[in-house]
Amino acid sequence: MNHTWRTQLVVAGLAAAMLEACGGNNNGPNSETDASFNDAVVPGADALTPDGEGPGPDGGGGMPPDAGDASFADAGDGGCNFATFVIGLVTTDTTMTALPSTSLGQGCTDDQNQADFQPLFP
């Protein structure tokens, strides 16, 4: 599985997890495939799911209290990918009520791979 494909799967899984956590916000571009990806192909998602089990810079994987619905993105640097982090922000919550994430993904690995963002431009 190449890097881009793997990233897309993780992104899709993330989106599904987020949508579930957010009560079914379907604004993201991957919404049609969320369920299957969430169930089947997100081996790395534990570090990125809303329960924040991964070792993050916030100390123990907890979500920033004011991070709103985008808090899933505060996965910390325990394996998080910057493209995934950004796509998570972009696709998760476009409502008027969400608060910004206080995590900026600065600890995430940035592959600087333009193709990582391809899911946003179908």
Partner: peptide, 19 residues
């Protein structure tokens, strides 16, 4: 968050989202 579209168009020069 803002992601620039490497194949920018008039309607989608970028994708923006988040709070």
């Amino acid at each position: 968050a803002r992601v620039l579209n490497p194949g920018a168009t008039y309607t989608v020069p970028s994708v923006e989202g988040g709070a």
